[in-house]
Amino acid sequence: MAKLDPAEIGKQLTVGEVARRSGVPVSTLHYYEAKGLIHCVRSSGQQRRYGRDVLRRVAVIKVAQRIGIPLAAIGEALASLPEGRTPTAADWARLSRLWRGELDARIAQLTRLRDQLDDCIGCGCLSIEACRLRNPLDSLSDQGSGPQLL
């Protein structure tokens, strides 16, 4: 790992530098900014400048997105972090605890879906009347066929 030049420590990053270092397109960084997930300051020439903490924040966003956390939930979590400070391992542990229950619920739902799919493949009907996968939670089917709420 290369040592950071002390002169570079306080230097703000351009949007291109953040894009290159984070592997995220400039357009995505602008989108994250518009959604309030990251923040910048403007130079005297109105160019975006980011603190180094934005690199860790972008990493948190990308990991959270990869595990399926919606951007709104990511935004809420990032809002709980102090602005201008790089998120720490303790911050990440706290955020991951917030999302663990949601992930456990999603895993359970996918497991149930997988198990139902196995049943469906065995039956092969994909019937709208009987198949739990084709027509889940159809509480109106007891009232007869066709539209029931018109």
Rank of each mutant, 00 (worst) to 15 (best):
G124D: 07
G10I: 04
L37V: 03
S145T: 15
M1K: 13
G101V: 09
P136G: 09
P136W: 04
C131T: 01
Y31K: 02
C131L: 01
L55D: 03
P147L: 14
L133W: 04
D119E: 13
L140E: 13
G36L: 03
L117N: 05
L126V: 10
Y32R: 00
G36F: 00
V18D: 04
V54D: 01
Y31P: 00
N135Y: 03
A105M: 05
N135S: 12
I74M: 01
K35E: 15
R49A: 04
K11H: 13
K62P: 00
L137M: 11
A19W: 01
R106P: 02
D138H: 10
P87D: 08
I107A: 14
A19D: 07
L117I: 09
S96E: 15
G16T: 11
M1C: 12
G51R: 02
L13C: 06
I74S: 01
G16A: 12
R66L: 13
R106I: 06
S145P: 07
L81M: 03
I121A: 13
I38H: 02
S96G: 08
I121N: 10
G101A: 14
D53M: 01
L133C: 05
S127C: 09
R20N: 14
I9N: 08
G146T: 05
R48W: 02
H39D: 12
L98A: 14
L4Y: 09
P82R: 14
D138M: 05
R114K: 13
R49C: 00
C125E: 12
D5V: 00
V54E: 01
V58A: 04
L81V: 00
I107Y: 09
I61E: 05
I38A: 00
A73I: 06
L110A: 09
G10P: 05
N135W: 06
L150Q: 15
Q65I: 05
D5T: 00
L29K: 03
V18S: 05
L71E: 05
A77M: 10
Q143W: 14
Q46S: 14
I69N: 08
E17F: 02
T88L: 06
P6M: 05
I67R: 07
G23Q: 07
D138G: 09
R42Y: 13
L78R: 03
D138Y: 06
L140H: 11
S96C: 09
T86F: 04
T28C: 09
G51I: 01
R106Q: 14
E76R: 13
V54W: 00
L126P: 01
K35C: 11
E8M: 12
R42G: 07
I9K: 13
I61S: 07
